[in-house]
Amino acid sequence: MSRSRTDRWLLVGLRASGAVTGAVVLLVIAFLLIESWPASRHVGLSRWITDPSWYPTSSAADGRFNLVPMLWGTLAAAGIAVALATPLALLSAVFCRFYAPPTIARFYRRMIQLLAGIPSVVYGLWGLTALVPLIQHFRPPGTSLLAGAAVLTLMILPTIALLADAALANVPGDHLRAAAAAGLSRPGTIRGVVFPAARAGIFTGILLGTGRAIGETMAVLMVCGNIVQTPTSLFDPIRTLTANIALEMAYAMGDHRSALFVSGLALMAIVIALVAMADRIGRGYAYA
């Protein structure tokens, strides 16, 4: 085989691999659309919101398909987690860069990396055996929105903290020298110079953390109690959209199964929108 022909075959092979790789996402979207088609046709648009409850059956006519309580469950758990994790994560990053002695900062950063590497099912197991009994002690049943939000906080804290820490590390030395030369105090430098300079990276971290919290399944499935209801207090058991899919796929048939694909599609749309936003704000952070 001549040299240029080898090169040509190589390129053909690479192009084909690239095509397969690129096609995966289309395949995912296509199958979600195909599978959710029956339910979207039989249930229509408004019933996802107006039906009195979530009591799905295999034929849409007899079932009730209100997704809103679970949507609230997802948003409440993720919202509380983001609200708790963001300040803690920013504080962690500031601690590492500005307040901790270098040795402690290195140890702390390594620890956050380890936290980031713990799989969600292990967080779920720990939440179930350590947090839920603790909450149950004060307010039965223990499996609750609070437990879910707490576990999610722990899970997204490392994501946000590591990205914020990297963003702080990337602040140009010039800014810092300028701040020091102007005699700015440490809080003045952090608030006035470092945070504005690292804004994009920090925001990216928060968005990715939010995406992770909304898309998380196992941990919330294990600690939230999985009762379909709109939460009214922190101690109410809730069911999230992701947990609902994991629970009901085992036996769902017909329109019920299709309805689960609809909720999957909705989840995917939300998370992809968040990731796309994060990607726009800080190119290159998405895989960290």
Partner: peptide, 10 residues
């Protein structure tokens, strides 16, 4: 004042 102007990013 430095060689390279270094205003704050604000």
């Amino acid at each position: 004042i430095f060689q390279k102007p270094n205003p704050f990013p604000v």
